[in-house]
Amino acid sequence: MDNSLVSSLRKSYELNELLEENVSQNPIEQFRTWFKDAIDGDVKEPNAMVLSTIKDGKPSARVVLLKGFDTEGFTFFTNYESHKGQQLGGSPYAALTFFWDGLERQVRIEGEVSKVSEGDSDAYFWSRPISSQIGAWVSKQSEEVSGRDVLEKSQAFFEEKFKNVSPIPRPPHWGGYVLKPSTIEFWQGRPSRLHDRLLYSLEENTWKITRLNP
């Protein structure tokens, strides 16, 4: 592919604006408003977010799914022994990035991460489809596997093992994390690349709003 084609790709963002007088003083409530807009706007996978962690002083990123949010933070679930789980064990700070292209919006969240309670992990695990519960037992996430057939044989093994078990126990290596935000930035695309950026920073238990240059 000719790089000139790539460099010529551009779009003017003109759908909306983000002004201080129109936002909530609480970023969680502002996120709630935008998240509902994303759902109502038929954004595909509105809860998909890039989770960025630190590995040996270098960034590492992947897409995961948000499974809840409130004043305590933003929750997601994964294998604790995966690459991201190991990285969070070594450095419990992370960043989340949402991009809702249909709304020309982005949200960036940074903060400290901790594990959710065993009870919360159990409750979410048992709310998942049975196939997903089995999958959590099958996958040794991020470890090398010799072929697809290994996964399929393991799946058959656990399907038979838990055939008459209810509820299926949650694997000890699987559960939730919650990121408690220290900063949340809301980005609204605007014409001429003069985008609106409002940064909420937590200072002495109070959220301060600052406008950033685009």
Rank of each mutant, 00 (worst) to 15 (best):
W174I: 09
P167G: 11
Q188M: 12
R197M: 10
A136V: 05
G175R: 07
I130T: 11
W174L: 11
G135K: 01
E159H: 00
D149V: 14
F157L: 15
V145Y: 07
K161H: 06
R193G: 15
F186W: 00
E160W: 00
Y177Q: 05
L179F: 03
P169V: 05
A123H: 08
L179V: 05
Q141C: 14
D149M: 13
V145N: 10
K180E: 11
W207P: 07
W187Q: 03
W174P: 08
S121V: 07
S192F: 02
S166I: 10
A136C: 14
R128M: 15
G135Q: 09
V178I: 15
T210F: 04
Q133W: 01
V178Y: 01
V145E: 10
R148L: 14
W207K: 07
V116T: 08
I184K: 04
S201R: 06
E204P: 04
V113G: 14
I168N: 01
L198S: 12
R190L: 14
E118C: 03
F186M: 07
E110V: 10
N164H: 13
E110I: 06
G135S: 15
E185G: 08
R197G: 13
I184Y: 02
W126C: 05
G135L: 12
V116N: 03
K140C: 10
F186D: 05
R148V: 09
D149T: 10
P181H: 07
K208F: 13
S127K: 08
D149Y: 01
R193M: 15
P167E: 11
R197L: 11
K208C: 15
